[in-house]
Computed example of a mutant assay.
Amino acid sequence: MGQQVQRLAAYAVIVRGDRILLSRLAERVTKHELWTLPGGGVDHGEDPRAAVIREIYEETGLHAEVGETAHVFSMHLSDTWRRGRRVDAHSVRMVYDGWVASDAPDPRVVEIDGSTADAAWQPIADVLDGTLPTVGLVTEALAVLLPYRRQRVAAYAYVERDGALLLTRNSALGPHPGVWTLPGGGIDHGESPGATVLRELQEECGLDGELGALLTVDDHHFTGTAPTGRREDFHAIRIVYRATVPDGAEPRVVEVDGTTDAVAWVPIAEVSADEESYSSLVRAAIAAAGD
Rank of each mutant, 00 (worst) to 15 (best):
G130Q: 05
R161M: 01
G114A: 01
A119E: 03
Y148H: 11
G174K: 01
A143M: 03
T116A: 07
A164M: 04
V138M: 04
A117D: 12
S115C: 06
T168C: 05
A164W: 05
A120P: 04
Y156A: 03
T181E: 12
A117Q: 05
T139V: 15
T181D: 13
G185P: 12
A125H: 02
T181V: 09
L142Y: 02
A120D: 10
P133D: 03
I112P: 01
D188T: 15
P123N: 02
E140C: 12
L142I: 04
A172K: 08
P177L: 11
A154T: 08
A172N: 12
P183I: 11
V135Y: 10
R149D: 10
G185V: 07
T139S: 11
L182D: 04
G184W: 14
G184A: 14
L145Q: 09
L128K: 08
G184R: 14
V138Y: 07
G186D: 15
V159F: 15
P177V: 05
A155H: 08
G178T: 06
Y156G: 07
P147R: 09
T168Q: 00
L128A: 04
N170H: 12
I187Q: 15
W121I: 03
L182Y: 13
G136E: 11
A120Y: 03
R161G: 00
S115E: 08
I112Q: 13
G184C: 12
